[in-house]
Amino acid sequence: MNIVYKHIIRFVVFAFLQALVFNQLNIGFGIHLMIQPLFIMLLPFELTVIPMMGIAFLMGLVIDIFSNTYGLNTSALVLMAYLRPIVFKFYGPREGYDPLKEPTSQDMGSSWFGLVYGLLLGLHTFWFFLLEIFELGRFGFILQKTILSGGLSFLLALLIQSFILNSKQKK
């Protein structure tokens, strides 16, 4: 499958899953599941940062429209897209990334994926709740929301990854 179509389809699927399924789940304890960071994470290695920020902006806009958050998701996703190359460079192999591989846990190893995605997701979630609550006096609450939502979103991302992995093995 053409790589561009693949990512367009992923964009639509991730946006709709987030807007229609995960936005509607009210778990409590301030937990807010987010899968759109995984979409930014799975974009190909060779994509440069400016188009990536553009894609992140669009994705955030779609999510914001569906959840009435007016730019909150956009801001957090653009921040994540901006930080992705920096984190990738920091944890990357010495000879650079293989352009044939994808930034998934089955291509790059689960420890690399866990470290990089965990860091990016943590920063994204922290920025999101920092802006949403915007009160330094309630820093503990921001941290609580970040850790609970980030942790569960991370587990969800691993689950979605394993689905993608399984569908590839069947082909």
């Binding site: 902006f57 730019g71 956009t74 801001s75 653009v78």
Partner: peptide, 10 residues
Amino acid sequence: MLQILALSWY
């Protein structure tokens, strides 16, 4: 620029 756009909207 993108951040300012998003945040001013927010």
